[in-house]
Design a protein around this nucleic acid. Structure first.
Lengths: 234, 234
DNA sequence: CACGATTTGTACGTATGTATC
DNA sequence: AGATACATACGTACAAATCGT
């Protein structure tokens, strides 16, 4: 659970370790909401580090909204409704994890395509076209190709006019970027690029025509295809 | 942009201020990826605080995956793909914001209900039933009623077997909790509780019968109703 | 290659607010 | 109500690692 990085212990990981410990115990409910955390002094003794390290760890979970601190009194775990951040584990090496995250992404991509088709402006459409063109221009499959792919999806999310879609899709895309790159770099088959671009073209066409259902359908087929290509690779 | 809390400046907000500053500048692209941040010493001079405060701020954005630090060298902004946290603004007072967030939540709730109906175990079902019962027992509309409502949706998300659904729905639910409570406390009409519970009952029944499409349909009707009740209130 | 300057990591001390006797 | 103990907020000093000269 601790020991998250591969670096030698004692080189900047102390705060990580304690932050993970506190975060896990709060999320699991070991520290109920409203209860007071152990004092910085006792935590520093418990982990055998200085109070500075403990303070940095507490500062992190404080910025996540998990706790609030009151000078002179203590640090108290906040109500779950004040939680302000959604975090991912640092690595998605596990194939099951990647699929699970993909499963979360899918309904959002469908909704994103639907909304974009209904609400897009000419400016949005132009930006989506440019991302699509950038993908065609990229050599198969360079880093810039993957980025252009993600940009295509991101531009669609921005065309929804809903900032939360844009932000969250960008977040998920970034998390999956390494996985996507790995999946593609392995199989150097050039027809994959053609297939992917044609799938994207269908999505683009549906958004051009302001046809929400066709856009969702095209996105659905694209994601299914992407998932299969990921699985094939293994 | 700074000055987020209402507390007197200089009482525990210093790290917040600097963290917000750095975070905003990195997300906006003012600090491109790979570039080195100003040193802790220079930042502490720039803001007129000690290095400790700067370090706490950096510790926060480090835990968000925005930067990585190397001892003896400096702090470098990471590639956007290593971003590990999705954060919300601290307040959702704006009605448009609430609706936008609701729009993000909807497709996820539908997918959550669908998957839960397909994959739920008896244990999951029992926990969903308990949350439903807790809602019926709660006085209309107490704090515990809202919590039971959110728990109902959260248990469904857990029944998907996908931890990301459980985590993210809990996150969104918490963000909307205050809004939901406000929307209900205003209109003290008791029939609202009956309507909400019957909508939930339909979702529960569909999940019991392992009928994904009915579950999604029931969830869709529930969310539409909830949105209308929120708008009526205004 | 070595040494020193710079930078982050850690430890410890001081100031200030809070709660309790 | 005052004093005292204790908790967090903040600052300073030292250690370790890196980089340029």
């Amino acid at each position: 659970m601790a020991q998250s990085k591969s670096a030698t212990p004692g080189r900047g990981m102390l705060a990580d370790e304690i932050a993970d410990y506190l975060s896990a115990n709060i999320r699991s409910g070991a520290f109920a909401h409203g209860t007071k955390l152990p004092t910085e002094h006792s935590l520093s003794e418990q982990f055998g580090v200085s109070r500075t390290v403990v303070r940095e760890a507490i500062s992190r979970i404080k910025s996540d909204g998990l706790v609030t601190s009151r000078q002179g009194s203590g640090v108290y775990v906040a109500h779950s409704s004040t939680r302000r951040s959604f975090k991912l584990g640092e690595s998605l090496v596990d194939a099951a994890d990647v699929l699970a995250l993909f499963e979360l992404r899918q309904p959002l991509e469908l909704a994103s395509a639907r909304l974009a088709a209904a609400r897009r402006t000419e400016e949005h459409l132009e930006r989506i076209r440019q991302a699509h063109a950038a993908m065609e221009d990229s050599s198969d499959w360079s880093e810039e190709g993957v980025i252009a792919d993600l940009a295509f999806h991101h531009e669609i999310a921005m065309a929804t006019g809903n900032g939360y879609y844009a932000d969250f899709m960008a977040f998920l895309g970034g998390a999956l970027q390494n996985t996507i790159r790995a999946a593609r770099s392995g199989s150097g088959r050039p027809e994959i690029k053609k297939i992917t671009i044609s799938e994207h073209a269908r999505i683009l066409a549906a958004i051009e025509q302001r046809d929400p259902e066709s856009a969702a359908m095209a996105m659905s087929m694209h994601l299914q295809g992407a998932r299969e290509r990921m699985s094939d690779k293994t």
